[in-house]
């Protein structure tokens, strides 16, 4: 019995060591990316922005883009926040109108695994929000995009 326990604990140790060697991203998900997007959004809550519970997410390779089409209302002010759990990745998010013209405010920003775009729509219409994984050490990088308005 004790030999069995010893063998089992040896196996468990090997298993733990193996698990420790698996890249962290193998266990991560879009939900992790969402929590980073929400980190980027958090300071804006104090400024009166209501952050939507719903969000977009997925995974992309380095250099790949994703477009999200969203209805925005004139009179409101919007921020879109993008995040990924991959620390060494760099991401960007930009907003274009339906004609393809960049419409975001100059205070939009990107910083490594976080990015944000700010828009005060000049018309009530659909807009394109373009998400890009600029660089990443991972083959696929999770991303999540949340938005808020006031």
């Amino acid at each position: 019995m004790s030999a069995f326990v010893q063998k089992l604990s040896g196996t468990a140790l090997c298993l733990m060591a193996a698990v420790a060697l698996i890249p962290r991203t193998a266990f991560s998900s879009v939900d992790d990316a969402q929590s980073f997007a929400l980190q980027a959004a958090e300071p804006y809550v104090k400024e009166g922005f209501q952050i939507r519970e719903d969000y977009w997410g997925g995974d992309l390779g380095a250099g790949e883009k994703k477009a999200v089409k969203q209805q925005l209302f004139k009179g409101n002010e919007y921020w879109f926040w993008l995040g990924t759990e991959v620390e060494k990745a760099s991401v960007s998010v930009h907003i274009y109108d339906k004609e393809g013209k960049l419409v975001e405010q100059p205070d939009s920003w990107q910083k490594g695994q976080f990015a944000a775009a700010h828009v005060t729509p000049q018309s009530t219409d659909s807009y394109f929000i373009i998400v890009t994984i600029e660089t990443s050490p991972e083959e696929r990088t999770h991303w999540a995009l949340v938005y808020g308005f006031r």
């Binding site: 477009a67 999200v68 089409k69 209805q71 930009h94 960049l102 394109f128 373009i130």
Partner: peptide, 27 residues
């Protein structure tokens, strides 16, 4: 921090047609 790569001022939205995600329905 300063902002990083500058975004193109204009894009061709027709090229996006196959990559567009569904809308989030506004509340």
């Amino acid at each position: 921090s300063a902002s990083a790569v500058e975004a193109p001022k204009r894009i061709d939205v027709k090229q996006l047609s196959k990559k567009v995600e569904d809308v989030v329905v506004p509340l």
